[in-house]
């Protein structure tokens, strides 16, 4: 499996080459185009409510699709919904990452995706719900962001404070506390919610340079209110 990022910048697309028999799991809706040798397996059988209840009963993910090169080698073009960068990570079998739900674009067959309940405090305060994705295993992992991706490298015991809504992914060797931004910080963070994560190294934290919620609020003010 090989990947190449096309048009790097705000509107990138990624080309993934699949050998015969290989498959890639992608966020549903990420597929832009593919070779005729690729089969798209959607996991939405039984309609939304059916998929939803299956998810609750079996933990099966309902927002992914599998693109499989079942009839020969081929390529797939993938793109995220929002404008922003795509990052390629190569999982080595030991490193694991937590990825917020909208940050996942695609993962190779060797990558294990677990939908996990995240900690109570983040579930309540983070505004992304209680499910978060845990990526482990070996192989290529594609993440996407809203805006540009910035990588923060933390040495052991090194700390860094990140606004909740800017988080994309972080290593499981890090730890964090949710804190309420005190009045001194509020001005310096774009989110008005005032909750931040104090991360502690070692490990990586990927953040996005734009906040989807903040952008949504900004756009809304220009939408004329009609009856």
């Amino acid at each position: 499996m090989k990947s190449e990022i096309l048009y790097p910048g705000a509107f990138p697309m990624v080309r993934v080459e699949l050998a015969e028999g290989e498959h890639i799991k992608a966020e549903s809706g990420a597929m832009v185009a593919c070779s005729p040798t690729i089969d798209i397996e959607s996991k939405m059988e039984g309609g939304f409510l059916g998929a939803l209840s299956r998810k609750f009963l079996t933990g099966e993910k309902f927002f992914f699709q599998t693109l499989r090169a079942s009839r020969g080698a081929g390529e797939v073009l993938l793109a995220p919904t929002v404008p922003g960068e795509i990052v390629v990570l190569d999982l080595d079998g030991v490193s694991e990452y937590m990825v917020q739900k909208d940050g996942f674009l695609a993962g190779a067959d060797g990558v294990t995706i677990d939908s996990q309940m995240q900690s109570m405090s983040r579930g309540l305060l983070g505004g992304e719900g209680f499910f978060i994705l845990k990526m482990s295993g070996k192989g290529m992992l594609l993440l996407n962001s809203f805006g540009a991706v910035h990588k923060i490298e933390l040495k052991p015991a090194q700390e860094y404070i990140v606004d909740n809504s800017h988080l994309v992914a972080w290593s499981t060797t890090t730890s964090y506390n949710i804190e309420k931004a005190t009045s001194g910080w509020v001005a310096s963070f774009t989110s008005g919610e005032g909750f931040v994560c104090r991360f502690r190294g070692p490990g990586l934290v990927f953040i996005q340079s734009r906040n989807p919620g903040g952008f949504g609020a900004w756009v809304r003010q220009f939408i004329p209110v009609t009856e």
């Binding site: 080595d92 030991v94 490990g203």
Partner: peptide
């Protein structure tokens, strides 16, 4: 090579070195 741990040190990258 099947690493089973991550090692962090000053000269390693922040991801840690699989070992």
């Amino acid at each position: 090579f099947q690493p089973n741990a991550l090692c962090f040190g000053d000269e390693f990258s922040a991801t840690g070195l699989p070992c």
